[in-house]
């Protein structure tokens, strides 16, 4: 009950911030306040891509939830998946397109379907540092050596820290939020 109330308060604050921002932008247009208009331009150029992509990402996630069996995810990414779980996580992360904002709801969906926490965190890590198109850019501008070192250092550290974080949270009986 208490938690529900704080949630409602949070939602209200969020709405107020968004409405206030909207009013600020409208006022800026009205009075020709250039910082306001500039911020709005940036918002539009940054948002369109994200806002176009997000609905499709969520449709894909929901299709995944409806069609892929819980047992399948548990078998490959769950508690007894062993090393295979991490391999899948890195493979999935490397082929995820788009910014980390897109990887977060996917990670959440994997976790709802029974992927273990360490695999979920490895997926988020891999989705941020091993994305294939990004790697191509990196290697061509900073050199292959840079990319090789970065992979060699980051992947083991990501897996290690995910395992530690996963064990720590399992001990604390952490469960992923159902909503969202």
């Amino acid at each position: 009950m208490e938690k529900k109330r704080t949630n409602i308060i949070k939602q209200c604050i969020l709405l107020i911030v968004i409405v206030l921002f909207g009013m600020f932008i409208l006022l800026s247009w009205w009075t020709g306040f250039s910082p306001g208009m500039l911020i709005f331009d940036t918002l539009i150029s940054y948002s369109t891509e994200i806002l176009i992509i997000f609905p499709f990402v969520f449709v894909l996630i929901s299709l995944f939830e409806v069609w892929v069996k819980q047992e399948t995810v548990e078998k490959h990414l769950g508690a007894n998946s062993g090393i295979r779980g991490f391999l899948w996580a890195i493979l999935l992360g490397g082929t995820t397109l788009g910014p980390m904002l897109v990887a977060l709801p996917i990670a959440h969906a994997l976790s709802r379907k029974g992927a273990r926490l360490s695999v979920v965190f490895t997926y988020i890590g891999a989705a941020s540092v091993c994305r294939i198109p990004m790697t191509v850019f990196e290697a061509s501008y900073l050199g292959i050596l840079f990319t090789v070192i970065r992979y060699a250092v980051s992947i083991p550290l990501i897996i290690l820290s995910s395992v530690i974080l996963g064990r720590y949270l399992d001990k604390r009986k952490y469960t992923i939020q159902k909503g969202g």
């Binding site: 939602q11 969020l14 709405l15 911030v17 968004i18 921002f21 918002l43 940054y46 948002s47 994200i50 997000f54 609905p55 969520f58 449709v59 996630i61 929901s62 939830e65 409806v66 904002l101 709801p105 909503g179 969202g180």
Partner: peptide, 18 residues
């Protein structure tokens, strides 16, 4: 379900974009 999830995250997403 997709629509529902999108609506749940949309306010937070807007906040981030702002």
């Amino acid at each position: 379900q997709a629509g529902k999830r999108l609506l749940t995250i949309l306010p937070v997403l807007l906040l981030v974009l702002i």
